[in-house]
Simulated scan of single mutants.
Amino acid sequence: MTKAAAELSVNPNTVVYRLRRIHALTRRDPLQVDDLLLLSLGLRLYDSGAAELS
């Protein structure tokens, strides 16, 4: 968490809060590999505009 916080220039508590918020909104745990993969793929689809097609 400390390394991620340094990369984002935020407090480590902010990183923890954001991960919890992602979990609350998506019901996916970004600390679990399978859920992280689904979140990552979802963001890539959204960024590519493919989400607008359905």
Rank of each mutant, 00 (worst) to 15 (best):
L8W: 12
G49Y: 02
M1S: 14
T2D: 13
A50C: 02
R44D: 08
P30V: 01
A51G: 02
Y17P: 01
A6E: 11
R28A: 06
R27F: 05
S54Y: 04
D35W: 00
A50E: 13
L19S: 12
A5Q: 07
S40A: 10
L45C: 05
L53D: 06
P12N: 10
Q32T: 01
S9R: 13
L37Q: 08
V16K: 15
A50F: 08
D47K: 12
E7W: 01
S9Q: 12
K3A: 15
H23C: 14
A50L: 12
A4I: 15
S48Q: 06
Y46F: 09
V10T: 04
D29W: 09
L43R: 09
R20F: 08
L38W: 03
D47G: 04
V16F: 14
A6D: 10
R20E: 15
L25M: 06
V15D: 08
L39H: 00
S40K: 06
M1H: 06
V16G: 06
N13K: 15
S9A: 13
A4Y: 05
K3M: 01
V16C: 03
G49D: 04
S48A: 13
L39I: 14
A4T: 10
V33I: 15
D47E: 14
S54T: 11
M1Y: 06
A6H: 04
L8T: 00
V33E: 07
L45E: 13
R18V: 02
A51Q: 07
P30G: 07
L45A: 07
T26V: 00
T26P: 01
Q32Y: 01
V15R: 06
D47M: 10
L43N: 00
L37R: 13
Q32W: 00
D34M: 05
A50P: 01
S9N: 13
L53H: 06
L53F: 09
G49Q: 05
L25N: 02
A51F: 10
S40V: 07
Y17H: 11
D29N: 15
G49R: 03
L36W: 00
E52R: 14
L43W: 04
E7Q: 14
R21P: 00
L19E: 14
D47W: 05
N11I: 05
G42E: 00
E52W: 05
L19T: 09
Q32D: 12
L36N: 02
G49L: 10
V10G: 07
N11Y: 04
R18F: 11
A6Q: 10
V10F: 11
D35N: 14
R20Q: 10
V16M: 13
S40C: 03
E52I: 08
A5D: 03
A24Y: 05
L41F: 01
V15K: 05
S40I: 01
D29F: 09
G42N: 02
H23A: 15
N11C: 03
R44W: 05
R44G: 11
A6N: 07
D47Y: 08
D35I: 02
H23N: 15
M1K: 12
P30K: 05
E52P: 02
G42W: 01
A24D: 12
D35C: 06
A51N: 05
A50K: 09
P30F: 11
V10K: 07
S9T: 09
E7R: 12
P30R: 08
A4F: 06
A6K: 09
V15T: 04
D35H: 10
L36P: 00
L31C: 05
T14V: 14
Q32G: 01
K3H: 07
L31H: 03
L39D: 02
P12S: 06
R27V: 02
V33P: 00
R27Q: 15
